[in-house]
């Protein structure tokens, strides 16, 4: 099983199926073309998008339906094409694609999730992009609320 040095968890084993290629990188990290989705026991539902190239680059990711159970992914035709997905329908989250929001805690006490620009990976081809839903009403600093009240503890 391949191993990778990680930002948060030391050396981690990963399965080949958790390695994804991002041909365009991510905005701001255009030279990063390879990431592993780390699933850490005890840290569910969080995922960690660890760069293969740079140990110190690891995004905290929340599955999109955990961040917003009603989330509707609407990819543009060119994004479907980049992901090698059929052009005539939207992919099903969890079956065709894995979709997650990057979490940021740089804006005040509570973390936020970027619902405007989700990470989307094709589960069959292992190719990923950061989609940018420019026309959507989704917020790039979506406050994380769970249960009845605001996320506060």
């Amino acid at each position: 099983m391949p191993r990778i040095p990680t930002k948060f968890f030391g050396e981690c084993d990963y399965e080949a199926g958790d390695l994804f290629s991002f041909p365009s990188g991510l905005p701001g990290f255009e030279d990063q073309h390879s990431f592993v989705f780390l699933k850490i026991p005890g840290a569910e539902p969080l995922l960690f998008l660890q760069s293969v190239l740079t140990r110190n680059l690891c995004f905290v990711v929340l599955p999109i339906l955990v961040a917003d159970p009603d989330y509707r992914l609407e990819l543009a035709p060119e994004e479907l094409s980049e992901l090698d997905l059929p052009p005539d329908r939207q992919p099903i989250v969890g079956r065709d694609v894995l979709c997650g929001a990057l979490v940021c805690s740089g804006y005040g006490a509570e973390p936020t999730a970027n619902l405007m620009a989700p990470i989307v990976v094709n589960l069959n081809t292992r190719v990923g992009i950061q989609a940018i839903l420019g026309q959507s009403a989704y917020c790039y600093r979506h406050p994380l609320r769970f249960g009845e009240g605001v996320l506060a503890c």
Partner: peptide, 30 residues
């Protein structure tokens, strides 16, 4: 929106730390 995403990605990468992870794990539904 690409420029915004770029800035948000950099902020997300810089802010990702053990403190944030522990905070999320305390609050998230398991």
């Amino acid at each position: 929106e690409t420029r915004i995403t770029r800035e948000e990605n950099i902020a997300a990468a810089l802010s990702a730390g053990h403190e944030m992870i522990e905070h999320l794990l305390r609050c998230l539904p398991r």
